[in-house]
């Protein structure tokens, strides 16, 4: 199977803290020389529509005060936003991002409707074969 030592991420939830963690984990995987394979599905796909990253991410319900403090703290740090981290990781590492065919079909979105960083729209089978053997995390 390809991707035996890859680091794989199923990005399913489109909330602010998970998008940030997607950027951090992808950048870190690229730093370490690991192939990173990302499958974008669920509510996260919204932010991978063309220019979708420019939208303000949804805050997780029930954590309003916590997230307010977190965002204020992040604004004080020299930290790239999640999309910039993905861009940097793709420039320096072996990173591929795939859109979920089920969600894309349901929403009527085609490849050209998605962020150019999406490599292709694939089904779960293709993603699982590409990422076979590597560790997978779900966000």
């Amino acid at each position: 199977m390809p991707g035996g030592n890859s680091f794989n991420i199923v990005m399913a939830t489109g909330t602010a803290e998970k998008l940030l963690m997607l950027g951090v984990l992808t950048q870190t995987g690229a730093n370490l020389g690991m192939p990173v394979r990302i499958f974008v599905t669920g509510t996260a796909l919204k932010y991978f529509k063309k220019d979708g990253f420019k939208e303000k991410p949804v805050m997780p319900a029930g954590f309003e005060d916590y997230m307010k403090n977190l965002v204020a703290g992040l604004d004080k740090l020299r930290t790239d936003n999640w999309h910039k981290m993905l861009e940097t990781a793709m420039e320096t590492g072996d990173v591929k991002i795939f859109g979920c065919s089920l969600m894309s079909s349901a929403l009527g979105w085609k490849k050209e409707d998605l962020d150019p960083m999406i490599d292709s729209i694939v089904g779960a089978t293709d993603f699982m074969i590409q990422s076979g053997g590597g560790q997978t995390v779900i966000l």
Partner: peptide, 8 residues
């Protein structure tokens, strides 16, 4: 910077 900035 914050993680993963320094290692980057």
């Amino acid at each position: 910077t914050a993680c993963p900035g320094p290692i980057t």
